[in-house]
Every structure is written in structure tokens, then in C-alpha cells.
């Protein structure tokens, strides 16, 4: 049993705000926020079954767009590319970000502040500038543009997001946690893996989620560093959207949403006994 789950269980749905009114307000506000987030999604799903090729008028139910989508080799291949690039770069970014945040929190390095500043440069650099400067860099190294260059770029702009989330979590960590583990005879690496890492799990999970979403959604940086073979979904989608919203893209979004929801629910079911793991 990890510490974070103990903490979690302790205030299981106990809002400390006393009056019911506050709880009611928070609950309904959250519901509204979800309605806001899902309104366009709901429309996308609805339009994906609409016979009308363009426009918002309902002209009857059809599965035509799904059929067309499943025969759209280009989109499917681009989707595969996106998943591959997203998975690899998320894994690397999560590793770099978690390790970096912990080391910078725990140890004092010379030029500490400078390092921290440089970590945030990819976050503050406008995407187009990052795309262009990485392109110049890759050409300088004569690295051919393709999967490898795209993955490097994606790791570069996602890992700071993992790191900053991790730092927020570490800042609130009880420093005596690790001390206690060490006092009880754990080696520093045992202390890290048995105590610190479980404490960081929620931040790792949300960091990885964020990194994956960012990678999956990126257009601007990717467009500069990709080659013709490593086209990702946003690049193909952007091209299609330029000439107006295509119902196939509605179908694609609807499928994506349904699939992720399904995966989430399955993993919830499977992981019921061990909460606190990555999603």
C-alpha cells in the first residue's frame, strides 16, 4: 500500500468545505465544464452519422463516412505513425522529465538556475521557431528528416511539461519521507523506487498523458522536421480540414473518442485492486 493511496482514502469524497452549498456548487460547476468540453465533441460524433457532406443540417443517418474512413489508407497510415511517434516520445519524455525533476529537486548542481531556465526554453519558444531552428539543426547534422527527427523534436517540446508537473508535486512532498526510508535501512535507490516513485505516480500519469496528447496533436513543429514518409495524423488532417470539414474526419474523431473511452473504462475495470497506477 503506497502513501498516496492512504492519503487518498483518508479523504474519500469528504469535501472539507462544510456547507452542502459549496459541494453542490463545485459539483454542478464541474458538470458545466464537462458540458463545455464535450459540446463540440458531441457535435462531431453526431455529424459523423449525417448524410450531408458539408453544412450543419441533418439529412439522415448514414455509415458511409466510416466506410470511407476504413478504406482511407493514407489516414490510417498517418494514424499509425502518430501512435508510434507519440508512444516512443512520451516514454522518453516521461523518463527524462521525471528523472530530471527529481535530481534537480534533490541535489544541488552548479549552474542550477541556468539549467532550470533552459529546461523551460522549449515551453516558451513559439512552436514555429522551434520547428525552424530544429530543421536547421538537423540539416547541420545531416540527419535525414523522418521518424527519428520527428521523435527527437517531440521529446524536446514535451519533456518540460512532464518536468514542471513533477516539480509542482515534489514541492509539496514531505522531505522526511525519504529520510525515514533511509533511516529504516533502505538504500537511496530503494528509497527512490519504493517511496518517492509511488508518491510521484499521479504526476507521472498526468505528465505522460499531457506529453502523449501534445505529441498526438502537434502540427507546427512536426511540419518542419518531418519527411514525406513520417507524416503524422495532424499533418494529413490539416490538409483535409483546409478545404472545409470533411465528414470522414468527424468519423475519425468519433472513433478516436469512443476508443479512448473504451480503453479507459477497461483499464479502470482491470486495475480496480491496484489504484494509483498509470492510466
Amino acid at each position: 500500500m503506497t502513501d498516496s493511496t492512504l492519503l487518498g482514502r483518508a479523504h474519500f469524497f469528504r469535501l472539507p468545505d462544510g456547507p452542502k452549498l459549496v459541494r453542490w456548487f463545485c459539483g454542478s460547476w464541474t458538470a458545466l465544464v464537462f458540458a463545455f468540453l464535450y459540446l463540440p465533441i458531441f457535435l462531431l460524433v453526431l455529424f459523423s452519422f449525417n448524410q450531408s457532406k458539408s453544412g450543419f443540417v441533418w439529412e439522415g443517418f448514414t455509415l458511409e463516412w466510416y466506410d470511407a474512413l476504413f478504406h482511407n489508407r493514407v489516414l490510417l497510415q498517418a494514424f499509425g505513425n502518430s501512435l508510434l511517434i507519440g508512444t516512443i516520445s512520451t516514454a522518453c519524455a516521461t523518463f527524462l522529465g521525471t528523472l530530471g525533476a527529481w535530481l534537480l529537486y534533490r541535489y544541488r548542481f552548479p549552474a542550477h538556475r541556468l539549467m532550470e531556465t533552459f529546461i523551460f526554453v522549449p515551453m516558451i519558444m513559439p512552436e514555429i521557431l522551434m520547428g525552424v531552428s530544429l530543421l536547421v539543426l538537423f540539416v547541420l547534422f545531416s540527419l535525414p528528416l523522418g521518424y527519428f527527427s520527428v521523435i527527437i523534436a517531440h521529446i524536446t517540446f514535451t519533456f518540460p511539461f512532464v518536468l514542471i508537473g513533477m516539480q509542482a508535486r515534489l514541492e509539496g512532498m514531505d522531505p522526511s519521507l525519504e529520510e525515514a526510508a533511509l533511516d529504516l535501512g533502505a538504500t537511496p535507490s530503494q528509497a527512490f523506487f519504493k517511496v518517492i516513485l509511488p508518491y510521484l505516480v499521479p504526476a507521472i500519469a498526468s505528465g505522460a498523458l499531457l506529453a502523449f496528447s501534445l505529441s498526438l496533436d502537434d502540427y507546427i513543429v512536426t511540419v518542419f522536421v518531418t519527411g514525406a514518409a513520417s507524416q503524422t495524423l495532424p499533418l494529413k488532417v490539416y490538409g483535409m480540414v483546409r478545404v472545409g470539414l470533411n465528414p470522414q474526419l468527424n468519423a475519425l474523431s468519433a472513433l478516436g473518442i469512443v476508443l479512448t473511452m473504451f480503453l479507459v473504462f477497461v483499464s479502470e475495470r482491470l486495475k480496480q485492486p491496484t489504484p494509483g497506477e498509470t492510466l
Partner: peptide, 26 residues
């Protein structure tokens, strides 16, 4: 609760697994 927490958190992110351009067009 921890289980709801992760579920809700994922629900916040799910819309963002579609392209931002498609969402904006919606």
C-alpha cells in the same frame, strides 16, 4: 475518490485526443 479522480482526469483529456483543428472547426 481515487478511482473517480483518475476517471475524471482522463475525461478532461479525452477531447484533446482529436486534432485541435477539428475541434476548432466544430
Amino acid at each position: 475518490s481515487p478511482a473517480n479522480r483518475r476517471l475524471l482526469l482522463t475525461l478532461v483529456m479525452v477531447p484533446f485526443w482529436t486534432s485541435f483543428l477539428i475541434r476548432t472547426y466544430a
